[in-house]
Design a protein around this nucleic acid. Structure first.
Lengths: 256, 256
DNA sequence: TGAGGTAAAGGTATCAGATATCTTGGAGGA
DNA sequence: TCCTCCAAGATATCTGATACCTTTACCTCA
């Protein structure tokens, strides 16, 4: 008698229920790379219309569990930190204090990251870190010369890349993904912190030297020293941000 | 001549494009709690069918940016760490080493968490931590007595709650959300680590005492001592997991 | 025999039109 | 004043169809 399966008030929606069931299946049994049955097949199995299946699958795509392409079945996705990126972005946008919260998180994660990298980094991992540092040098230009916007973006990208490379070299996959997710918010943060950096009389070559010290400790396999070098560097960044933001706060009321 | 707007190969799908546009709007201008226009209105604005809007909105719901309820417009959601939970779960499920990676992350985050909580926790924050610890005591039962499954679940829930309460008391919102996201994977991990805990001759009352020490340091406002107490506790948990997993490794593994 | 092109089959993307149910707010009565 | 009930607006889902993409198997030609 009932052709449709409308959602009841006390029950989640049909699409949500299907999505939850599929999510359990994906997280439980299926491995990344394997594919789901076709939409039509799933519609038959769950006794709902194909549209409901589409909505369920879209939910899971949003959660980062599936990859959907036209003409192909939905594929279980390798986990990555993309889902976390939205969250960090919204935190920073909605909350002015968010940037300091992020620096505090970095302080603990990066120190751990450097410690582990010093213990475990293999040749490829160290080469990746060196490559990013070289990229910073290449785009830094001559001392005293102002940087173009392109150069600055490239410099920050290599800076973020350096920290991401250290995280990857730590051998801890979660750390790697966390830094991947932090990359975008971090780049935004670096544009801010650089103002403070200059205001405090430092140059980008000081930044490069700080990174060089961290790399040296990692290459030497000295976890404790690497941790300390990283801690000093992050603390310095925190001061940069504080100076830059306090300037921003004073600017609007200038000459009033 | 073209009534529909089919997706081009080199372009993202219509639903994806709408979702991306809405996401930028949500992260840029809208504040949590405000609501989107109705599906019909959005369909008109973007010149697509209502179905496409529904799929776009489902994508964003999956990303945790929107909350959708029947009969009401879609509402911009307060950011939370739910999106991160999927990721952690999949890491742990797909990768046997994932649990140790998670413990390493905890080691750095929880030490930071305890340090900050000792500095910043207000009365309400400390009361919340105390409440969870009391919850552990209440469900622990008499020494030597075996726990029922319900009791054990409750005990672990309060244990996780303790750590989450410390994170919240740190005043760092990102830390709070990270622990919220870790709660579920952590509970699973605790069921594993408890075996090792007992195997090593420890009881749940030892666990309670370890937590009590952490709480005392936080109440005393001694960040350094709180950090050290937390570090010892996490290191102990790591040993528990190692012992438990080495036991599991000797048991036959089922194939699918 | 092998290489390249092509058409069919299967899959997703999207549209259109309808019905069911829920939420909310206002009209009307006790 | 307060409660009840109904209508309007919103979402949830279904059915049926068309367009386009991907894969594969087949067929042709060198």
């Amino acid at each position: 008698m009932s052709k449709s399966v409308p959602a009841r008030a006390d029950q989640p929606t049909a699409a949500g229920a299907v999505a939850e069931h599929l999510a359990q299946m994906i997280l439980g049994e299926l491995t990344p790379g394997s594919s789901l049955p076709s939409e039509a097949a799933l519609a038959t199995r769950y006794a709902v219309s194909r549209l409901t299946i589409r909505e369920a699958v879209k939910l899971l795509e949003g959660r980062g569990l599936l990859e959907i392409a036209r003409g192909r079945k939905a594929v279980v996705r390798e986990p990555d930190g993309a889902a976390f990126a939205d969250f960090l972005t919204s935190i920073i946008r909605y909350d002015p204090k968010g940037l300091f919260d992020l620096v505090e998180i970095r302080l603990s994660l990066e120190v751990q990251s450097a410690t582990l990298a010093a213990k475990r980094a293999n040749r490829a991992g160290i080469a990746a870190i060196e490559s990013e540092l070289q990229g910073m040098r290449d785009t830094a230009g001559a001392p005293g010369q102002p940087m173009s916007d392109d150069q600055e973006l490239s410099f920050h990208t290599h800076d973020v890349g350096f920290h991401e490379a250290v995280a990857l070299a730590s051998g801890n996959r979660i750390l790697g993904f966390l830094f991947e997710a932090m990359a975008q918010p971090l780049r935004e943060g670096f544009f801010i912190s650089r103002r403070g950096h200059e205001k405090r009389g430092h140059t980008r070559h000081d930044t490069i030297e700080a990174h060089q010290r961290i790399l040296d400790c990692i290459k030497a396999g000295n976890g404790r020293a690497a941790a300390e070098a990283m801690r000093l560097h992050i603390k310095d960044t925190e001061r940069d941000i504080r100076v830059a933001l306090s300037q921003l706060a004073h600017q609007p009321v200038e000459h009033s």
